[in-house]
């Protein structure tokens, strides 16, 4: 029983990271109607920024750590906005296949840049979490797990409040439904899309720090698998839906952790994707996805 509980907690923690990444996919999809396949690689770049700050520049204690975290998040934010400006904005009216291929191109570009600078040998990321965690009965909960869950919950609450209760958040909702109608209300669509990329990428930055602190091996391909899993989580929850991405991410993490523990660690990914297929067969729009009938 206590081991079940600890697998569950691990799953929730991993799932929170997926959820943070999935938020970026789902928000960008909702607003720009594109799958930003480079999103996972933004995470990897965030990891390297923090790694460089902590291990190369030696910002490894106290204020230094906060500086490193700040640089990592800011770096991801700027990278996301830059990628949107340079690679996606010129394709605003292009067919979606062209945009998709561009996104895949950007993904490889980022991986290759990291390969060029940092080489292919994995780096050992030292955790930025300074807190040792605690035990409940026999169950040991690591500091990383506690921080990951706490940070994710705070971010999700903050994001929900932002989207539903601020002008910029409302503008995002409006653009995601109807760009033309949003413009008629006075919403600047380009600025809203930039803002969405900024938020999504900053969340990727947070996710990267949490991910690398828990799973410390950092390589140019570090972002790929979590990226795909988070994308799966976004689809699972209903792509375009913010609560869907949160729920989808957590469920995915829990399924992965439990199937690793009780079924097979080799098959856990197959099980995760199998569950996705079943959910999509039963409810093609995902758990929280909704499609309203248009009225004439």
């Amino acid at each position: 029983m206590s081991s079940f509980f600890s697998y569950l907690i691990t799953g929730i923690s991993l799932g929170s990271i997926y959820a943070l990444i999935a938020l970026g996919y789902t928000m960008v999809y909702g607003i720009a109607k594109m799958l930003n396949f480079a999103h996972g690689d933004v995470i990897m770049i965030g990891g390297y920024i923090v790694f460089t700050a902590v291990s190369t520049l030696g910002w490894s204690s106290g204020l230094g750590i906060f500086g490193a975290i700040f640089c990592g998040i800011l770096g991801c934010l700027l990278l996301g906005v830059l990628v949107e400006k340079v690679a996606y904005k010129p394709l605003r009216n292009a067919p979606s296949l062209a945009v998709l291929i561009t996104a895949i191109g950007v993904s490889y570009l980022l991986q290759n840049i990291a390969l060029l600078i940092f080489g292919s040998n994995p780096k050992n990321f030292s955790s930025v979490v300074m807190f040792d965690g605690f035990s409940i009965g026999k169950v040991r909960i690591s500091g990383e797990t506690v921080v990951t869950i706490a940070v994710s919950v705070l971010i999700m609450i903050g994001l929900t409040l932002f989207v539903n209760h601020t002008k910029s958040g409302m503008a995002m909702l409006a653009v995601s439904e109807d760009k033309g109608a949003a413009q008629l209300m006075g919403v600047n669509v380009n600025r809203t899309i930039s803002l969405t990329f900024a938020i999504g990428s900053a969340l990727a930055g947070v996710a990267s720090i949490l991910l690398c602190s828990t799973y410390p091996l950092l390589s140019p391909y570090t972002g790929a698998m979590p990226g795909i899993k988070a994308f799966t989580a976004a689809v699972f929850g209903g792509i375009g839906s913010i609560p869907g991405a949160m729920i989808g991410g957590v469920i995915l993490g829990v399924i992965e952790s439990l199937s690793k523990a009780y079924i097979s660690s080799q098959f856990s990914d197959a099980i995760v994707f199998g569950v996705l297929i079943i959910v999509l067969l039963v409810k093609p729009t995902g758990i929280m996805g909704k499609k309203l009938n248009e009225k004439v």
Partner: peptide, 27 residues
């Protein structure tokens, strides 16, 4: 650009309504 027009005092009720379907009436 289109989003500046409303600030000048012109509103447009578009063909087919184009209300924000997923939001509440109030929003």
């Amino acid at each position: 650009p289109a989003h500046k027009i409303v600030y000048l005092g012109m509103a447009h009720v578009p063909e087919g309504r184009r209300i924000f379907q997923q939001l509440t009436v109030y929003d």
